[in-house]
């Protein structure tokens, strides 16, 4: 069985360390917040201007002035702070955020990522994605291993316009986990989802990965 989106998020949450400042992208990465391990104190950054993002409010307690980057209503925590957009991206670009977990359309074996536009389709914009992959200390891409046609999204080279170059150090898909530590050129397979065979992953991976 490949991992569900929730299981992928749970696996990504194992990468969180005590004291980390973390930015979670929209989509599957948002689910990571539900799986923060007990005893691990993580501060979530929202790039629209908040550190210490709290849970969604109870009905009737929504504050229109208090939203996350996905424009969802949220709440504060005792440790929360607010700031403007320039300060927010000083945190991001300046390397003060420990970890960014983001979705991807494609990731290449050299750590390139594409997740902001498909030529010929309406382009909505990159938002903060380019700043995050350029500035955050460590970036994890969380995405389905193949597209709807069954084609690999983990490629030798991205075919879509890039969001960033050589910036992804871990890939977590529904089939497994792949790491690429600093100084390494290629990703190494770290683990497989339960009951997923090596042959299956190999057949669905275009990227040149170290398998042993």
């Amino acid at each position: 069985m490949s991992w569900t989106r929730d299981q992928m998020a749970a696996r990504a949450a194992q990468e969180l360390q005590d004291g980390y400042y973390v930015n979670l992208g929209i989509g599957i990465p948002t689910l990571v917040a539900n799986h923060i391990p007990d005893g691990v104190d993580v501060t979530l950054q929202s790039e629209n201007g908040m550190l210490g993002m709290g849970p969604f409010p109870f009905e009737g307690e929504e504050n229109p002035d208090l939203i996350n980057a996905g424009k969802q209503t949220i709440t504060t925590l005792p440790k929360s702070s607010f700031f403007d957009s320039a300060t927010s991206f000083a945190m991001i670009r300046g390397g003060h955020i420990d970890l960014s977990i983001l979705g991807a359309m494609e990731v290449a074996e050299n750590g390139d990522i594409a997740n902001w536009m498909i030529p010929g389709k309406m382009v909505k914009g990159m938002g903060g994605a380019m700043d995050l992959v350029a500035g955050v200390k460590r970036c994890i891409a969380l995405f389905d291993h193949t597209n709807k046609r069954g084609e690999s999204k983990f490629l030798k080279a991205c075919t879509l316009p890039l969001t960033g170059q050589n910036c992804i150090s871990m890939v977590i898909t529904d089939l497994g986990v792949f790491t690429r530590d600093e100084g390494q050129k290629r990703f190494r397979m770290l683990e497989l989802a339960p009951d997923v065979t090596l042959d299956e992953v190999k057949s669905k991976t275009e990227a040149d990965v170290v398998w042993d």
Partner: peptide, 18 residues
């Protein structure tokens, strides 16, 4: 935008803020 009536310049959000 698709009709060519509107120009658009995308900036990464942090670049825009800075």
């Amino acid at each position: 935008f698709l009709g060519g009536e509107l120009e658009l310049e995308f900036n990464p959000q942090g670049t825009l803020a800075e």
